[in-house]
């Protein structure tokens, strides 16, 4: 199986409102894929279906050939999918290190080895000096980093990143891009990211999937996608970031 993640014709409605409709795409093993689209296009809904927050109304999700749709989020995570939340959800009353240790415990036999792993990840993401702060004391960019650190601590083979660059300054954004490239290159982590910051998507993604009104309207390399007339039309009407 060359596809790490295969999403086939998934649909989801909320109270009759179609959020995602028959979306299909693949994330090849070892690649970085960007999922873009205007606000309300159904990107986060797709993520939630992949991560098991709710099951799709129709369609299938396969991880490395195994069907995972309908699984609970913790089962999906145990199967090797780490995710971040668009609206960050830190464990506010715990320290930064404790936050990441919770993630690391998934694949550690005991708390002390989990702490050691957590420490390594914090160093990698530049949060080392803040390890003993309470998560509630972090700035927004640091909370986004913490979100990534926690997900990484579960040692995922597929990482789902939901707008982790939003709100970061350009230099911070570039740092994050470098971190993800490194993770992808050195550890072979496959990444699927939702991102509005086009600069980051263009720099990272080898493939891009464009969602619009819950449907996939284009996919391909970044160069192909930005030239796609359907994409231009959908974006020009609503946002002009491209």
């Amino acid at each position: 199986m060359s596809a790490r993640l295969e999403v086939s014709a998934i649909s989801k409605s909320f109270r009759g409102l179609r959020a995602v409709q028959g979306a299909s795409f693949e994330v090849p093993a070892g690649s970085i894929v960007g999922l873009i689209g205007p606000n309300g296009a159904g990107k986060t809904t797709c993520f939630n279906m992949i991560a098991g927050v709710f099951p799709p109304d129709a369609g299938e999700v396969h991880l490395e050939g195994r069907r995972i749709d309908g699984w609970r989020p913790d089962q999906v995570c145990a199967a090797g999918v780490g995710r971040t939340f668009q609206i960050v959800k830190p464990f506010s009353g715990l320290t930064v290190l404790e936050n990441v240790t919770v993630g690391a415990l998934l694949r550690s036999n005991d708390v002390s080895s989990a702490q050691k792993r957590a420490d390594e990840i914090l160093e990698k993401l530049g949060l080392g000096p803040k390890r003993d702060l309470l998560a509630s004391a972090l700035t927004l960019p640091d909370r986004k980093r913490l979100e990534v650190a926690r997900a990484l601590a579960t040692q995922p083979r597929l990482l789902l990143l939901d707008e982790v660059m939003a709100g970061l300054r350009p230099t911070e954004c570039d740092q994050m891009v470098a971190v993800f490239r490194e993770l992808n290159r050195a550890e072979g982590i496959t990444i699927l990211l939702i991102e509005h910051v086009m600069r980051a998507v263009m720099a990272l993604a080898q493939r891009i999937v464009v969602l619009h009104h819950g449907e996939v309207i284009a996919q391909g390399t970044p160069e192909e996608v930005v030239r796609d007339p359907a994409v231009l039309e959908s974006y020009l009407g609503e946002e002009t970031e491209i």
């Binding site: 991560a51 927050v53 609970r72 989020p73 913790d74 995570c77 145990a78 780490g82 995710r83 939340f85 959800k89 830190p90 464990f91 506010s92 009353g93 715990l94 404790e98 240790t101 919770v102 993630g103 415990l105 998934l106 005991d110 708390v111 926690r150 997900a151 601590a153 579960t154």
Partner: peptide, 22 residues
């Protein structure tokens, strides 16, 4: 481990579950 998981659940059950906590 249980203590860590409990506190994670207390702070945010969704985030805990996304980190593989049953």
């Amino acid at each position: 481990r249980m203590g860590y998981y409990w506190q994670a659940i207390r702070e945010s059950p969704e985030a805990a579950q996304a980190l593989g906590v049953n």
